[in-house]
Amino acid sequence: MASDDQPTIELRLDGAADSDPEAATGYAVAKRKRRSWIGWVVAGVILLILIVGVVLVETVGRTAAVRIAQDEIASSLGLESSEGVAVDLGSGSLILQALTGGLDVVTIDIDRFEVNGLESSVQVVATGVPVVSSQPIDTVSMDVAITGAEVSKLATTLSGTGLDSIELEGSAIRVSTVFKLLFFEIPVALDLVPVAAGDSIAFEPESVVLGDEQISVADLRQNPLVSGLAGSLLSSQEFCVASSLPTALTIDSVAVANDNLVIQLNADGIALDDAAWKQYGTCPAP
């Protein structure tokens, strides 16, 4: 009679590892290598996601910051729109700068800006711009450049008499006219130097060319023959800019440079949300 006990056969997939120590060691090493490779892949994917995330935040944040700056500048300077306003937030990371409290340098270029009836271009450079609007900006400098063609519109301001021409000559504004004395016509050219005068620009006579002769302003005024005529030519007036600029800005200097009349203004240590950026001065009625 056959026995009830049947032989048992056990199938083990890792049997080779049990029977062969060297094979077991190789298997473990391969397994660790596979896990290490997978770990590096996962770490790389995570790093890539982080990099893409930072780039997106930086790009979106920079775009939003530029748009906000454009709108704020347009509002502060009374522009009809932010079109033509270019904002450069610098090459540094906005995230890192924001973490330190503010932006290092912000440069703003405005294509068209009107200064009491004269068209100009403007460049603003601000340093130490805080991310919190209640904190003061370190420095703000603003250059307003008015072309010679626009300066010619100041004929009545530059002189109390009619002018034949107005040109930018070197560091001065040269105005020309013709004096009629009895039967003679005497051409006169006067060089005026622009200077800051509070919230206005004054034009001070520097030198006079009377016919072919150069005469000092003092001598011309004392000459009884032409003092009456010269008086109207030398009675320069001031050109007010207060009504076109926020009271936060003050005129630092005025000069003729690169065929432009350049007004340099500044505003240091004033917070972004200060009311002075929204308030304007007044100019006397013409």
Rank of each mutant, 00 (worst) to 15 (best):
E169W: 01
L163K: 04
V106T: 12
E206V: 11
I110E: 02
I270Y: 03
A16Q: 14
E167N: 14
G102V: 06
A65Q: 14
Y27N: 14
P21L: 00
V125S: 03
S216N: 07
L50I: 13
L225W: 06
K153A: 15
L225C: 00
I251F: 03
V60F: 07
A230T: 07
F179T: 06
T177M: 03
P205I: 06
D14V: 09
V151E: 05
I9H: 12
E206M: 11
S200D: 09
A197Y: 07
Q214M: 09
F184G: 02
Y280T: 12
S75R: 12
V87K: 00
M142G: 05
T157N: 05
L225M: 08
L229S: 06
C283R: 05
P194H: 03
V188W: 01
R34Q: 10
P187F: 02
A230G: 07
G78A: 03
S75H: 09
E150W: 05
E238V: 11
T250Y: 07
V217G: 04
W277A: 03
L79N: 12
P136M: 03
V226E: 01
G162S: 15
R174T: 14
G102C: 02
S19L: 11
L118H: 08
V193T: 15
V131K: 04
G26E: 14
D5W: 10
L99D: 13
E213I: 12
I146F: 01
Q214T: 14
S82I: 04
L94T: 08
I46G: 05
A86F: 10
V115C: 04
L154H: 04
L77T: 06
T107S: 08
P136I: 01
E83A: 15
V45D: 00
A16K: 15
S244F: 02
V140M: 08
F113P: 15
P130V: 09
P7M: 07
L48E: 00
V57E: 03
V106I: 13
V66R: 12
S91P: 09
A218G: 10
T161E: 13
Q264T: 11
T139W: 06
V193I: 13
E185K: 10
R174G: 06
G170C: 07
I215C: 03
D20M: 03
D199P: 08
D273W: 00
I38M: 02
V29N: 02
T177E: 00
S176C: 02
T127L: 01
D274I: 02
E213C: 03
P194T: 05
I137H: 02
F113M: 15
N258A: 14
E167F: 02
A2N: 11
N223Q: 00
I73A: 02
A17H: 10
D164L: 03
V66E: 15
G198L: 02
P136R: 00
S120M: 07
V60K: 07
N266K: 12
T282D: 13
R67G: 14
V57R: 08
E169V: 13
P286M: 04
N116A: 08
A43Q: 04
S227D: 01
G92S: 12
